[in-house]
């Protein structure tokens, strides 16, 4: 088990290197720092001097991979690749193009993100399982068929409409909660209700539908017939036999997302004005702040890989048949 985890962690290194190379290629080879400077400065101010100035200020005035003018180890370290990409491995994210310290930003902004994402995630899974169980109880009836239709219809509504609709109805028409904003000191739950509600509601369609198929798949298994032959009631079969078995794919399917909860949600955070990492990324994209985007790509990849490892571990925990080796 321990050996397995260590091996997975080692395997993460080449992946992170790959991620890094890919982003580096995207950001520095496809578009040269000159291009970036030109678009950052805006058409009016593009002069060779201004570009050089911008590059020097932001640390892009070095060669990409090899610095011939430096000596010793510095030929490798005094390059854009080393200062901008390799240092990410030491969690040294540097400064954004607007000069702010990214590490500080990230560590303060991940908590509001988590405050929205964690309840949405947990409540969402719980609601989806409950809804799916209810539907499965009526399997084979017209209620089941209509429920599936409703799920598909819910899936077909753009996420944006859930947010816009939720803000319009709950906040504007009924005036139950503030439309947007976040205040960690003053009744933060008031600001959290609507975003959490919207994300749970928007997930029901696809979530409950998926869980329903998982439940039905288990309901067709041989052991269910055995339980029936024992004289167990349908309700007992559903809760004692089908549910524990179906929880394995459900659990292992969502565990991979848990670390990524820190990243928050782009849309929810920007619509509701929550100062989390999601809106941080969105602002970075809109202001074309590539230093932040690069750092967030790196953090996101680490969290995802961590999620994959967690998934494997959760398998052994949830399913007695699985032993890692």
């Amino acid at each position: 088990m321990l050996a397995y985890i260590i091996r997975r962690l080692l395997y993460a290194i080449p992946i992170l290197v790959g991620v890094n190379l890919l982003t580096f290629t995207l950001f520095f080879v496809v578009n040269s720092p000159d291009d970036m400077a030109a678009s950052q400065l805006g058409d009016k101010y593009v002069t060779p001097a201004a570009i050089e100035n911008w590059k020097r200020k932001n640390g892009y005035d070095k060669p990409l991979f090899l610095n011939d003018s430096a000596t010793g180890l510095a030929t490798l370290t005094d390059t854009i690749f080393f200062t901008k990409s390799v240092r990410l491995f030491a969690f040294d994210f540097g400064r954004s193009e607007s000069g702010r310290d990214i590490t500080t930003d990230v560590s303060t902004r991940m908590w509001p993100s988590l405050a929205v994402a964690l309840p949405s995630f947990a409540l969402g899974i719980w609601v989806n399982i409950c809804v799916a169980l209810m539907v499965v109880m009526f399997r084979g009836t017209s209620l089941d068929r209509w429920a599936v239709f409703v799920f598909v219809a819910l899936m077909s509504i753009s996420y944006l409409f859930y947010i816009i609709g939720g803000q319009y109805l709950v906040a504007k028409q009924w005036m139950l909660v503030p439309i947007s904003g976040f205040d960690p000191d003053f009744k933060p739950w008031k600001f959290l209700i609507l975003p959490v509600l919207v994300s749970v509601l928007s997930g029901i369609g696809s979530g409950a539908r998926w869980y329903r198929t998982l439940f039905l798949e288990e309901a067709g298994q041989d052991y269910v017939r055995t339980a029936r032959a024992k004289g167990a009631s349908e309700l007992r079969i559903l809760f004692r036999h089908i549910l524990p078995n179906a929880l394995i794919p459900i659990l292992t399917g969502v565990v991979v997302l848990i670390p990524s909860l820190f990243m928050g949600s782009l849309l929810i955070e920007s619509f509701f004005g929550i100062p989390g990492l999601g809106s941080y990324m969105l602002d970075a994209i809109r202001s074309q702040d590539f230093a932040i985007v690069r750092s967030m790509v790196f953090i996101g990849s680490i969290l995802y890989i961590f999620g994959l490892i967690l998934t494997d571990i959760s398998y052994t925990w949830a399913d007695p048949r699985v032993r890692l080796s």
Binding site: V19, T23, V30, N31, D35
Partner: peptide, 21 residues
């Protein structure tokens, strides 16, 4: 694995922005 470990939306956003440049 490498590709799917990058948050999709960031990758797309970055690529589109770079193309826009």
């Amino acid at each position: 694995t490498t590709l799917s470990s990058i948050p999709g939306i960031l990758l797309i956003a970055a690529s589109v922005l770079l193309f826009q440049v």
